[in-house]
Simulated assay, not measured.
Amino acid sequence: MSVFLGLPVRTAPAARCDCRRCPWYSGADADPVVTIAPVCSGCNADCSYCGCARAETPAVGGPPACASCPIRCGSRTDITAWMSDIGHTLEFDDIRISGVLPPGMPTFIPQVDGSGVTELDAGLRWPAYAVGLRRVFSPHTHGIYPRWRQDATAAQILGLAESTLTVLSGYGEDPLVEAFWTARHRDGLIERIAALRFDLVLAPNYSIYGNWPRAEHLINMRRSLLLAGELADAGIATVPNLYWFRLEDLRRYADWITANPLPAVAVNLQTVRENRNWDTWALPGLCWLAENLPDDLPVILTGLSRRDRVATAVELFGDRLMLVSQNPAQYALHGAVMTPDGRQDLHARIPDAFAASVRYMASLLPHPTLTRGGA
């Protein structure tokens, strides 16, 4: 929020993506009177929402167009409410995230669905396990599932030794993470997460799609960091997720990280399946981050499983790379294992298949296995 003549000015992206009237525009033709924080170089040429339905007459008795639209843009009738929800700014400067990674965190962390983890770990004794947000937080009730409301730690609920590290992988489909954002201040939701004593939380990330307006990108990047900050403020070791659309986004992250040392950064690559998305978005961004992030900053990638992509990530980040993947658990349900030659259907026992795949994935990463953690 800016100040004009001593009074707060509540800023918002300009309606109809009118850059010249937008306080966040950084273009050469930006109006210096209007511009408050130049963080955006202009409209997204690939946006599919330029023909906004707000101009259409809603059906008789139907809701206003903005009420049923999932996209946040300057033309929304409630855009000021959204800007209020994120602190009236699209900058990162006010967000602080402190903390360290827990000692003994392995470079590979298998993600499980939360059931039968004792049996999976019996012959493996792995140092850490992750569980996804949808196994802990319900998109239907917008609260913690009863199983996780016990007076117990995450390790105890999963049936693991207290010495085993637990990670909450806060990623999920858009409806899930949107529900978490809306409910985060209700019924002590963040405090309940803190009470579970996860050793590490990878903060939820809010989507950035290529056909969305630029305002939605900017709002979602800030929301991802804001939520990570709120989790960290609750005493949780939290790693923020980085999502980007343009080079200017990566530069903003790098500047913010330089001024605000973090325990690590994370990138969720679970939806990057097609080579086109990998080649045009993920890989260029990862290359830039590898060159511009602090050399000692751990980087946690979720969703990589292909041997060639893992090898590329190792080449980029070396021994500061950490991976989280649910593939070993998914393959094991079908008696299959991950191997250098790809998936092999061996009809193996689930715990045996799981252990084999976990060891294989760990073998793709620099050693020693245990490399990360603060005092």
Rank of each mutant, 00 (worst) to 15 (best):
A266E: 03
P261T: 11
L269V: 12
P340V: 15
I257G: 03
G318T: 06
R273V: 14
S305H: 09
D319S: 12
A336C: 15
P298H: 06
A353L: 10
D341N: 12
A356Q: 07
R306W: 08
I300V: 15
I300Q: 01
V337R: 13
P284G: 05
D345T: 15
A336K: 14
R307H: 12
L293A: 02
P294A: 00
L289T: 01
H347K: 15
Q330M: 14
A332R: 07
Q330N: 11
A264H: 02
L297V: 04
V265G: 11
L289C: 01
V314W: 03
S325Q: 05
T271S: 15
R343T: 14
L333S: 13
T302Y: 03
L304P: 06
T271Y: 09
V265S: 09
V299S: 02
Q326H: 06
A264D: 02
P351L: 04
N327P: 03
R343Q: 13
A259V: 06
D279V: 06
W278D: 03
P263I: 08
R306L: 04
G303M: 00
H334Q: 13
I257F: 01
Q330R: 13
L333R: 12
A264W: 03
A348G: 11
R307M: 06
A290F: 06
V337W: 11
A311L: 07
C287I: 12
T312L: 00
I300N: 00
V267E: 09
A313G: 02
A259Y: 08
A259K: 11
E315L: 00
D279I: 08
A259R: 10
Q326V: 10
T339G: 10
H347V: 09
D296T: 14
F317R: 02
L316V: 06
A348L: 15
A329F: 12
S325G: 03
D352E: 14
L283C: 08
E274F: 13
P328I: 12
Q326T: 14
P284M: 05
T280K: 15
L304W: 02
N277F: 12
Q326E: 08
R273S: 14
A332K: 01
A282Y: 03
N277R: 12
W288E: 11
S305L: 10
R343I: 10
S305D: 14
P351C: 14
D352C: 09
P263M: 08
L297S: 01
W278G: 04
N275D: 15
A355N: 06
L297M: 09
A353T: 10
I300H: 04
L262R: 05
A313W: 00
I350T: 14
I350C: 11
T339Y: 09
L269K: 01
D296A: 15
G342M: 14
Q326A: 13
V272W: 13
L297K: 03
Y331P: 02
D295C: 02
V299D: 01
